[in-house]
Simulated scan of single mutants.
Amino acid sequence: MQPRRYWNGNALRTRLFDGLSLLLPAGEEFVIRAAQDWLDTHPDADPRLRAEAGRFIREERSHQRAHRRYNAELHDAIPVAREAEQGVTAAVGELDRLGLRMRLALAAAFEHLTALLSAEVLRGEAWVDDTPRRECRMWRWHCAEELAHQHVAGDLLRSMGPLPGQRILALVLASVYLAGDAFSLTWTLCRHELRQGFVGRRELLAQAGRFAWRAFPGLCRIARGWGGQWLPAAR
């Protein structure tokens, strides 16, 4: 029987999504600022698109509040989590130096990648347990809304006319950022569990193997979806 600290079945899967939660508030702030800057600089744009952008911002704010509350509890349980989240926030803040068109391209890429993962979370229990636990319900609610508004950042970008190759570059950069940060944060949290003796190295490796086996079909679908975004952008 797993300790109560592992809401998602075991240490590996729990800390994977805990790591993603540490990443999300800064990422959501980035896409919110990009959408808000578009609203501020395009007062005469299509009213329907402006309304979509406003709804997008409100939903991202609600996600941000939920994850900040969750992360505050995580900071208390795992002291290294606070420093890890601060590092991510500082790194994402550097992206604000980019121009609005590139920031929107990155926002659209982040939203696309998040939607691919969200679809897998909602598909079954390979990623997140389908239980009434608060954390599971939070993730499923978040993922459902991500799928519903995934198109908005892309629509804002298209209204400005992305530069040739900009979407490809943004997708590659966003993929590197997300994969690198997700791995780093998950490892930071798992290393804490190992040092505290909450889980053994062999047990953690076994959990990783089982997760990889169960998630492999979904990872293939994510890879196809990523390529599906690449090819249209390349034409």
Score class of each variant (00 low, 15 high):
Leu104Arg: 06
Leu104Asp: 02
Leu104Trp: 06
Ala107Val: 07
Ala107Pro: 01
Ala108Asp: 05
Ala109Leu: 10
Glu111Arg: 07
Leu113Val: 13
Thr114Gly: 14
Ala115Ser: 14
Leu116Asn: 15
Ser118Ala: 14
Glu120Asp: 14
Leu122Arg: 11
Arg123Tyr: 15
Gly124Ser: 10
Glu125Tyr: 03
Ala126Leu: 08
Trp127Tyr: 12
Val128Met: 01
Asp129Lys: 03
Asp130Ala: 11
Asp130Met: 00
Asp130Gln: 05
Asp130Asn: 05
Thr131Gly: 07
Pro132Ser: 04
Arg133Ala: 05
Arg133His: 09
Arg133Tyr: 10
Arg133Trp: 12
Glu135Pro: 10
Glu135Arg: 14
Arg137Val: 04
Met138Phe: 07
Met138Glu: 09
Arg140Phe: 00
Trp141Ile: 02
Trp141His: 13
Ala144Trp: 08
Glu145Thr: 10
Glu146Ser: 14
Leu147Lys: 05
Leu147His: 12
Leu147Asp: 00
Ala148Asp: 11
Ala148Arg: 13
Ala148Phe: 13
His149Val: 03
Gln150Tyr: 12
Asp155His: 15
Leu156Thr: 06
Leu157Ala: 13
Arg158Gln: 11
Arg158Ala: 15
Met160Thr: 04
Met160Val: 15
Gly161Met: 03
Gly161Asp: 04
Pro162Gly: 12
Leu163Tyr: 15
Gly165Arg: 08
Gly165Tyr: 01
Gly165Thr: 06
Gln166Glu: 14
Ile168Gly: 11
Ile168Asn: 15
Ile168Glu: 12
Ile168Leu: 14
Ala170Asn: 04
Ala170Glu: 09
Leu171Met: 09
Leu171Val: 11
Leu171Lys: 15
Leu173Ser: 05
Leu173Tyr: 15
Ser175Cys: 11
Ser175Pro: 07
Ser175Phe: 12
Val176Thr: 09
Tyr177Cys: 04
Leu178Val: 10
Leu178Tyr: 03
Asp181Ile: 11
Asp181Ala: 12
Phe183Ile: 04
Thr186Cys: 02
Trp187Met: 06
Thr188Val: 10
Leu189Gly: 01
Leu189Met: 01
Arg191Val: 01
Arg191His: 13
Arg191Phe: 02
His192Asp: 01
His192Leu: 02
His192Pro: 01
His192Cys: 00
Glu193Asp: 09
Leu194Glu: 00
Gln196Met: 12
Gln196Leu: 01
Gly197Pro: 08
Phe198Ala: 01
Arg201Cys: 07
Arg202Gln: 05
Gln207Trp: 04
Gln207Pro: 08
Arg210Gly: 13
Arg210Glu: 15
Arg210Ser: 14
Arg210Gln: 08
Phe211His: 15
Ala212Val: 13
Ala212Asn: 15
